[in-house]
Amino acid sequence: MFERFTDGARKVVKDAQEEARSRGDRAIGTEHLLFALTRDDGPAGEALRDSGLFRGAAGDAVAALPDPSGLDGEALRLLGIDLDAVREAAEDAFGPGALDAPSGSRRNRSPKGHIPFKPESKKALELSLRQALNLKHGYIGSGHILLGLLQDRRFRAARALSGAGMDLEALRADVIRRIPPKAA
């Protein structure tokens, strides 16, 4: 599949890996692809920026998503556990940031070498191929990658965009309009 990627699409994938590395993440998520697309010079980056989504806004939108650690504050509240109160009590007893990962933890160190894709990112890239085929394009560009991210609203990137107030269908139509029929 990667043989169909344009140089721009390959750069997006490489930039997504660097995004994950710089954040100390062990795998590339759809949010890393979104961050990389905000810097893209092609149809995806243009569509995102024209709709008001820049790198900082993308980071804020992803940060606003529920905690990926699996701690569901609402579910804990239903069990009578106030997650904010637990955090506050821990910080009162042990100091600010008591529940944060230690600075020397594996999570906070930049991973070296190859960083794998999370399953949802692999799926988004597979969907980018399907999008290219549906549009009868013989290549996969950055616009197709964005279309792949938008296709499944369960992806973190799609949820972040939606949570930021983006109209995903309008964004989809805009990027389709911008994608050239032949690779540049």
Rank of each mutant, 00 (worst) to 15 (best):
R4C: 12
R4A: 13
R4W: 08
T6K: 08
K11D: 08
Q17G: 06
E18Q: 15
R26Q: 15
G29H: 10
H32Q: 13
F35P: 00
A36D: 01
A44F: 11
A44K: 00
L48P: 00
L48D: 01
L53F: 03
F54W: 10
G59M: 10
A64Q: 14
S69N: 06
S69G: 12
G70N: 05
L71A: 06
D72S: 11
D72Q: 12
L76W: 10
R77A: 09
L79S: 08
I81H: 03
I81Y: 04
E88Y: 07
E88D: 09
A90N: 05
E91T: 06
G95K: 14
G97R: 10
A98Y: 11
G104C: 06
P111V: 09
G113D: 06
H114G: 05
I115E: 00
F117D: 00
P119G: 09
E120Q: 10
S121A: 13
L127K: 03
R130F: 11
A132P: 02
L133T: 12
N134E: 14
G138Y: 10
L146N: 01
L149W: 01
D152F: 07
F155R: 00
R159A: 09
S162I: 03
G163Y: 07
G163A: 09
A164G: 09
G165Q: 15
G165V: 12
L168V: 11
L171K: 03
L171E: 02
R172S: 15
A173H: 10
A173I: 10
V175R: 01
I176P: 02
R177D: 12
R178S: 15
P180E: 08
P181K: 15
P181F: 15
